[in-house]
Design a protein around this nucleic acid. Sequence first.
DNA 1: CAGAACAGTAGGACGACGTTATACAAGAGG
DNA 2: CCTCTTGTATAACGTCGTCCTACTGTTCTG
Lengths: 208, 208
Amino acid sequence: MQEDEVVTDVRSGAGRTPSRAVEQALVDAAERVLVRDGLGAVTVRAVATEAGVAPMGVYNRFGSKDGLIAAVLVRGFDGLRAAVTEDADPDPIARLLASGRNYRRFALAQPQHYGAMFGGRPLPTEGADELVAYAAAAFEALVDHVRHAMARGALREQDPTETAQLIWSSVHGAVSLELGGAVLTPDPAVTYESLLHLLVDGLRRPPP
Amino acid sequence: MQEDEVVTDVRSGAGRTPSRAVEQALVDAAERVLVRDGLGAVTVRAVATEAGVAPMGVYNRFGSKDGLIAAVLVRGFDGLRAAVTEDADPDPIARLLASGRNYRRFALAQPQHYGAMFGGRPLPTEGADELVAYAAAAFEALVDHVRHAMARGALREQDPTETAQLIWSSVHGAVSLELGGAVLTPDPAVTYESLLHLLVDGLRRPPP
DNA sequence: CAGAACAGTAGGACGACGTTATACAAGAGG
DNA sequence: CCTCTTGTATAACGTCGTCCTACTGTTCTG
């Protein structure tokens, strides 16, 4: 934790520290436990057992339980960014709609990840910088789509961050409520689709 | 827990059980601890100490820690309903906008409550019925505003629940992200105002 | 090639948590 | 007056996150 230890060379994989594999195994195990048993079941002992290492390994590698969870959430944010980025339809509006649908699909497919990413209150302090960077990258992907749409004249020109924030707020709220079982309409998918169209229609460039 | 014990009469307040006061004291204490130290600090022992009773009182009165927290959240949802209901401007659109602003004001004024109401994942099982009822009442207040606006011809006619769900999703998402420090625009209040207008404009009855 | 220095591991221990079991005090019914 | 129910208080159990101590294997120096 003091300062970066300069590793002179990489040693072709399993050289200096044979424990980079342990690091990977711990994150894998934590992710498995998270998906299988929920965030509450992600305990240091359970993850260490699942990974086949001693509980102390968590503290050697990640500093604390929060550091380990942060490593898992980094993967989550990266997956979210990938979901938002894929299906880059050339048509700007189609691309935005696809991003919104993929956002929801990701959240419903990885509800435990999504809940831990946005529901768990105090974001882990350990490894928070990396976490924020990955979260910002996911948001930036959305901003890029907005910029693309504005450049093509498909969305009203204004600060892209402002517009992206509006979209993210609405989309996150809808997904968050749906995961919490608080969507009271008969078909959440239909309501979500209405929301997406409400957003893009409202943000469209008004006809000349 | 078996079945409803029929209390023959009310006994003018402090009759049969002198512990209704203890119940009140525990909820008050839990609320104080929640506001002062956050949800994580709401432990059975801490609340009992704050209320000046033994930890067992929590289990006698509420069955579990979750039951106690549910009692606190009932107050929270009631406050949220009150916030959404107040300022019932006769103009439907003004009323909707005021509700949205009051919703955010409530969340920012009671961030710990709001976080526990929507952020804490497994909603407490104990007293869940009452909790759901109060949450539904808050949502129903919004549905009423939407119905009022539709009846006056200010909003496009469709299922009011559907429309209210759209509004709630967006508003909750914005507030939730703001409480989590994830609003990346310079002035969250301005962005929130944009969101409110985007919603009401998009839901307005199109000109004839 | 031998010994020193050291990062990483293993296991147990500490305090705090939610919860439960056991023993005790106080008011209602006969 | 005795009994029985009801609620309280104390102490304990198991698990959690975290830390301390002893130990092992590797890496560098001579």
